[in-house]
């Protein structure tokens, strides 16, 4: 237990422990998103992934996302953790848990969190295949340069 709301770690993530951090008496819904390492991407077999982060900034940006969620869906508690280092197929890369008074906001906030992570959190993954490796970037096909005010808010 580190008492944090967001963090980046090389240690395996425990969804149960993260869910317990958003569990509270005034919540009627807890929504959990677990991002895992997929074996095949567009027919190509991945052996394992390597995640790298700019840890200090990544945690700042995760906190920013948690704050944005609280503003947009008041009464939401958000806890997010992202793993770095080598991850094998089916390993958990990211866990997002949100608790809200009612279920609608829990789905919306959870979806918002993962999309924002893919936009503004400085974490990168490298796919390793049988015949090579490559850093993956720009999955959201955002334009190069600075995120718009809307994006970097």
């Amino acid at each position: 237990m580190n008492g944090k709301q967001v963090w980046v770690t090389e240690e395996p993530l425990s969804p149960g422990e993260i869910i317990s951090r958003v569990t509270r008496r005034d919540a009627g819904a807890i929504n959990t998103f677990i991002g895992t390492v997929r074996e095949f991407t567009k027919g190509k077999k991945t052996l394992y992934l390597h995640y790298e982060a700019y840890p200090a900034m990544a945690e700042k940006k995760l906190q920013q996302i948690a704050d944005e969620i609280e503003k947009q869906w008041p009464g939401t508690t958000t806890v997010m953790a992202h793993r770095t280092g080598r991850l094998d197929i089916t390993d958990i890369a990211v866990v997002i848990a949100v608790s809200t008074p009612h279920r609608d906001a829990s789905y919306a906030a959870s979806r918002y969190a993962i999309e924002r992570i893919k936009e503004i959190v400085p974490i990168w993954k490298k796919e390793h295949w049988e015949d090579g490796e490559e850093w993956i970037g720009n999955q959201k096909e955002t334009k190069p340069g600075v995120p718009t005010k809307e994006e970097s808010r």
Binding site: A93, I120, V121, P122, I136, N138, P144
Partner: peptide, 22 residues
């Protein structure tokens, strides 16, 4: 930081390729 942002003494400047976390 935007293109016009001015660098000051002691600033740490990071170059970030398009991110791919999650």
């Amino acid at each position: 930081a935007g293109q016009e942002h001015k660098i000051e003494e002691g600033d740490t400047i990071a170059f970030l390729p398009p991110v791919s976390g999650g």
